[in-house]
Design a protein around this nucleic acid. Structure first.
Length: 708
DNA sequence: TTAGGGTTAG
């Protein structure tokens, strides 16, 4: 071309961008002898629309300022779009200020971009202010942007009100926005109704519509609706769209029809990371981690969602060793820092295993990597520390949190309840209410659990009744179990019996087991036998239940009945997983320090004349010193030290046992401790006892031949 | 020659 000018240069740059060759476009951009605002706008826009190159767009914008090229509406809207993508509110505010100063804020393009930017950067009120202050410039796109902002905010009433105002102007995007808003905010029935209505008024459905509707079917777990939608998609040849095909796969996974999900995924013939993520979750929720792992390994590119899908599968099945090993894999194979959800899962693994040391290491790692703590991470950390026995750490994290949501309160209330601080748990619940945070079903499990441990029958009942009356939460089986346990432990067996009859949901093995314990502590063999039948009907293959039953009869010396149960166990060829006997634990604990700790605990638990039990040992200074020493000298955490987890977990386990032992100690009243941290050692005798113990230890150690 | 709103998995 002989006569090149700025228009032709801009055109060739644009052509390369349309051809998705951003490198060539950049080459022409750099070598262009003439550049105007359009040249810059074109390049910024190209970078804004290319994932992982967004920051290049900011750099081009910066060079635009350096060269003194003036901004126009196009520059500003493109930059707002880029800001929304990068979620940098401060950029957005600077752009907005500039727009106001230069009177560049008054066309429908800038209005819609501002609404969108503020909404995506999380300041809904600013979006609303722009919307309200620009009524004369409002067009359909701006209105749709505002409806989308309301949906993001979760204010579906406002979204709906806006949608239906001048509804004759609504286009496909308007409908899709509201349908997706309903689907994402859990108003699934409304999403489906609107979808049907859309068809009835003659508005055409497109791939966006179907993606949202499939998501609604997935959340509803409604295969009936899902299959109707699938059929329509097949008829209209839309099934190869990756958004739609992964939506179908997800729908079948959520509806537990994994065979169909596999078929649909295979029929597309391409790798779709969304479909595979859904399949991994589908297989792992059926307990098939082998297939989940195979799918995971088959992916060429893994993102953090896929990693999390696998992590959460292992956590769900409580396979903590696999969680820790996977975390090592992650750190070996990925250059990226694990995101919040991955860390939450790993911390969840630590909590299940009561693996304090690994948990602390993850916490330290987070601090070192400068990972910003959000509410979810703080809650996970507090939960991990509470479940690993470090309630003070949990408390510290809770108190330092800049804002506390419901999950955080739930973790802490449960933590206090498990550690025997019922008053703190109850006070925290009251604080939660004062701060207008609405409790949910989980809050009440934690709260009832606190009451259960403290024998607070009346308060427990008050909370139980309040759940439904004040908060509209229907009690689930776990809430009933807490109440049955509470009644059982406080000599109110009649109330437990009554409650068992009232339960509107299916009674599971846990509640029958709880009820059986209640019968046992209240010495009602007749009721125990009834419970036995129900329990064995549900869990005929669980050996632990047979042993529990046998123990009920053994406790009252009813050997005939006990033999009958043991006979049933043999007849049904049921086995109970072996518990950890002291001997076995000693064998496992090869190193001497741990041996000392365990022997000490063992010794004191079996001293007939001392009023000392595992509680005292575990609470003693001696135990804590020993444990610290042990942790200090143990190998640092890594995948090769599975044994280390086991031993640390055991120590934690003893602490938990300790709390239980207090509750069932003969010193307690009505099966409840007189004091949770009860001092059963006579005052002033602790040192003598510990000395006695140390002497015993020394004697034992001398008697054991040195393995070296 | 350049710009704005709606979609999927943890």
């Amino acid at each position: 071309m002989l006569d090149r000018n700025v228009f032709t240069w801009n055109s060739i740059i644009s052509a390369h961008i349309h051809n998705r060759d951003i490198t060539k476009a950049r080459h022409f951009f750099d070598s262009a002898p003439f550049k105007d605002s359009v040249t810059y706008n074109t390049m910024i826009s190209a970078y804004a629309n290319t994932s992982s190159l967004e920051l290049e767009g900011v750099k081009v914008f910066s060079s635009m300022q350096d060269t003194g090229t003036p901004f126009d509406d196009f520059t500003l809207t493109t930059m707002l779009n880029l800001t929304a993508k990068l979620l940098v509110l401060s950029y957005g505010k600077q752009l907005h200020s500039y727009m106001v100063k230069t009177a560049n804020d008054s066309n429908s393009f800038t209005v819609s971009s501002l609404i969108d930017m503020y909404s995506k950067c999380g300041t809904f009120d600013d979006a609303l202010r722009v919307f309200k202050g620009s009524s004369g410039l409002m067009d359909l796109v701006s209105k749709n942007a505002m409806v989308a902002a309301c949906c993001r905010e979760g204010d579906m009433d406002m979204a709906s009100e806006l949608f239906w105002r001048f509804s004759e102007l609504n286009d496909t995007v308007s409908w899709n926005t509201l349908i997706s808003g309903y689907a994402q905010n859990g108003c699934l029935g409304k999403a489906l109704e609107l979808f049907v209505l859309m068809g009835e008024i003659g508005m055409r459905w497109n791939e966006h519509t179907f993606t949202s509707v499939l998501s609604a079917c997935s959340s509803l777990k409604s295969q009936k609706h899902g299959r109707e939608v699938h059929a329509w998609i097949l008829k209209n040849g839309l099934c190869l769209n990756p958004y739609i095909s992964s939506g179908i796969v997800d729908m079948y996974c959520k509806c537990d029809n994994i065979e169909y999900a596999e078929l649909v995924n295979a029929s597309t013939g391409t790798e779709n990371v969304f479909s595979v993520s859904s399949l991994i979750v589908g297989h792992s929720s059926r307990g098939d981690m082998v297939e989940a792992r195979r799918l995971f390994d088959s992916l060429k590119e893994k993102n953090s969602v896929v990693w999390t899908a696998l992590f959460s599968g292992y956590v769900r099945l409580r396979n903590c060793d696999a969680v820790f090993e996977l975390f090592l894999d992650f750190n070996t194979n990925e250059t990226q820092v694990p995101d919040a959800l991955i860390l939450i899962n790993v911390l969840g693994g630590c909590a299940i295993q009561a693996a304090l040391h690994p948990g602390k290491q993850i916490h330290t790692y987070m601090v070192r990597m400068g990972i910003k703590l959000d509410e979810r991470l703080r809650s996970s950390l507090a939960d991990m520390y509470a479940k690993c026995g470090e309630i003070e750490y949990a408390e510290r994290i809770f108190k330092r949190a800049p804002c506390r949501d419901r999950v955080m309160y739930n973790s802490m209330i449960a933590g206090y309840a498990h550690h025997g601080y019922e008053n703190k748990a109850i006070r925290l619940f009251e604080e939660m209410l004062e701060r207008s945070i609405t409790p949910d079903a989980i809050t009440f499990i934690a709260l009832l659990s606190a009451c259960r441990h403290a024998g607070l029958v009346e308060l427990g009942y008050k909370y139980f009744a309040s759940m439904k009356q004040d908060y509209g939460i229907l009690p689930e089986i776990d809430h009933y179990s807490c109440m049955v346990d509470l009644y059982g432990r406080t000599n109110c067996l009649d109330k437990a019996v009554e409650l068992m009859k009232e339960i509107p949901v299916k009674r599971d093995a846990v509640i029958w087991g709880t009820f059986l314990n209640a019968c046992m502590t209240n010495e009602s063999m007749e009721l125990a036998r009834e419970a036995e039948e129900s329990l064995l009907r549900i869990e005929a293959d669980n050996g632990a239940r047979y042993v529990q039953l046998a123990n009920v009869y053994a406790a009252e010396g009813n050997w005939r009945e006990m033999c009958r149960i043991r006979g049933k166990m043999r007849g049904g060829e049921v086995r109970k997983l072996a518990g950890c006997s002291w001997r076995w634990i000693m064998k496992l604990a090869k190193d001497q320090l741990l041996m000392q700790i365990l022997e000490g605990v063992h010794h004191f638990c079996h001293m007939p004349n001392h009023k000392m039990n595992v509680v005292h040992v575990v609470q003693s200074q001696w135990f804590s010193t020993m444990k610290k020493e042990y942790l200090k000298f143990s190998a640092p955490w890594s995948g090769r030290h599975g044994k280390f987890y086991q031993t640390v977990a055991m120590l934690q386990f003893y602490e938990k046992c300790a709390i239980r032992l207090v509750q069932s100690s003969p010193e307690s009243q009505n099966g409840l401790p007189t004091r949770i941290n009860g001092d059963f050692i006579e005052d002033g005798k602790e040192d003598a006892l510990l000395n006695d113990f140390s002497q015993h230890l020394r004697d034992r150690m001398m008697a054991v031949p040195n393995p070296e």
